Amino acid sequence: MQRRLDGRVALVTGGGVRLGRALAEGLGREGASVAVHYHASREGADAAVAAIRASGARAEVFQADLSRADSVRPLVEDVERALGPVSILVNSAARFDRVPFLETPDEILDANWALNARAPYLLSREVARGMVARGGGDIINIVDVGGAFAPWRNYSAYGMTKAALAALTKSLALELAPAIRVNGVAPGTVLPPEDLGSDYLEVLRERIPQKRFGSPMDIVETVLFFLTGPTFITGQILPVDGGRTLETGPAA
């Protein structure tokens, strides 16, 4: 039985942990040949590759420090040499540093910028050249409601760089059309950090209209919607947040 992504090659950054791993495995279940990128999480990347192969699709692991600009071209070259031309890029790798604004050191700001904003820019440029030459492709950026819609307190560096990624999504949708569609998914509270504490997490949960946190599969299914659903969609950023961005507090 043919699967929805049979014949396509997907590069998923940050594919060894958390949401990135769920995305890599989800695309593999739909038949894509998946390049699972990782920086330090080799064990998780290997596990993702094993799961994808068990589902009947091809997969390989690729290591790169995407905070280094000179790592981007070799990564794409290695992926295409091993699996074939990339037709799907999922920019998922990110830092998520919780630091009050007045205490944020330059190093944290620079690290967030390098991975959350510059790396997707450079990777998109690298793969888009081939996509345009071949006549098509998809770029999916994993943004965040905290960058695209409503800021998170104590995440100024993260939110600023995710806002830049949201702007990049729209810019590329204009510049790369009609060959390439570029869309974004903005998760709300999905896989929240465990170190926030149960009381704080309960406060977060109560602020979500659906009164629950999202699951990785909510994001996977949204990415698959952009990849396999209506083709007349580009430049859109879809919040997947249980209605959190609708919450404005009590009426005055």
Rank of each mutant, 00 (worst) to 15 (best):
Val203Trp: 01
Arg4Ala: 15
Glu30Gln: 14
Glu103Arg: 14
Asp138Phe: 04
Leu172Ser: 00
Arg68Leu: 15
Phe62Glu: 02
Val36Ile: 11
Asp6Val: 11
Tyr38Ala: 02
Phe96Gln: 04
Arg73Ala: 15
Asp6Lys: 09
Glu126Pro: 00
Arg42Asp: 01
Val61Phe: 01
Arg134Gln: 12
Asp106Lys: 13
Val145Phe: 03
Phe226Gly: 04
Ser55Glu: 10
Thr161Met: 14
Ala69His: 03
Ala164Tyr: 04
Ala111Leu: 12
Ile219Gln: 04
Glu30Leu: 06
Gly7Met: 12
Ala148Gly: 02
Asp6Cys: 10
Asp195Lys: 13
Ser33Cys: 03
Pro120Thr: 10
Leu174Phe: 07
Gly159Pro: 00
Pro85Asn: 04
Leu204Met: 13
Arg29Trp: 04
Ala45His: 10
Asn91Ser: 13
Arg53His: 01
Leu123Arg: 12
Pro105Phe: 12
Gly56Thr: 07
Gly16Met: 10
Val36Asp: 03
Glu247Ala: 14
Gly44Asp: 09
Glu103His: 13
Phe96His: 13
Gly28Gln: 08
Gly242Thr: 05
Glu60Phe: 03
Arg129Lys: 14
Ala173Leu: 08
Gly44Lys: 14
Gly56Asn: 07
Ala179Ser: 14
Trp113Ile: 13
Val203Ile: 13
Thr161Glu: 08
Ala164Gly: 12
Leu172Asp: 00
Ala114Ser: 14
Ala148Lys: 05
Glu206Gly: 14
Leu109Asp: 00
Arg181Gln: 05
Pro120Asp: 07
Ile180Gly: 02
Leu246Phe: 11
Ile139Asn: 03
Ser215Lys: 14
Asp241His: 07
Arg73Gly: 03
Pro239Met: 08
Leu227Phe: 08
Leu89Phe: 07
Leu11Phe: 06
Ala117Glu: 03
Leu174Val: 15
Ala40Phe: 12
Leu102Lys: 02
Gly235Ile: 11
Ile140Val: 15
Pro100Arg: 14
Ala148Trp: 06
Ser215Gln: 13
Ile52Ser: 03
Met160Gly: 11
Phe232Ile: 09
Asn116Thr: 06
Pro209Lys: 09
Leu122Gly: 05
Val76Ala: 03
Val79Leu: 10
Arg181Cys: 05
Leu172Val: 03
Tyr158Glu: 07
Leu227Cys: 08
Ser67Gly: 15
Leu168Met: 15
Arg118Pro: 00
Pro216Gln: 07
Asp138Glu: 15
Ala164Lys: 05
Pro151Lys: 06
Glu247Gln: 15
Pro209Ile: 11
Ala164His: 00
Pro187Phe: 09
Leu246Glu: 11
Pro85Ile: 00
Arg81Tyr: 01
Thr234Asn: 05
Ala167Leu: 13
Glu103Thr: 02
Arg3Met: 08
Asp144Thr: 08
Leu227Ala: 08
Glu175Thr: 09
Pro178Tyr: 13
Arg81Lys: 13
Asp241Tyr: 08
Gly136Thr: 08
His37Arg: 12
Val61Met: 11
Ala157Glu: 07
Arg73Lys: 15
Pro151Gln: 02
Val182Tyr: 11
Met160Asn: 00
Gly229Lys: 12
Val79Lys: 10
Val145Met: 08
Ala177Glu: 04
Leu172Gly: 00
Thr161Gln: 10
Thr169Gln: 07
Gln210Lys: 10
Glu25Asn: 01
Val127Asn: 02
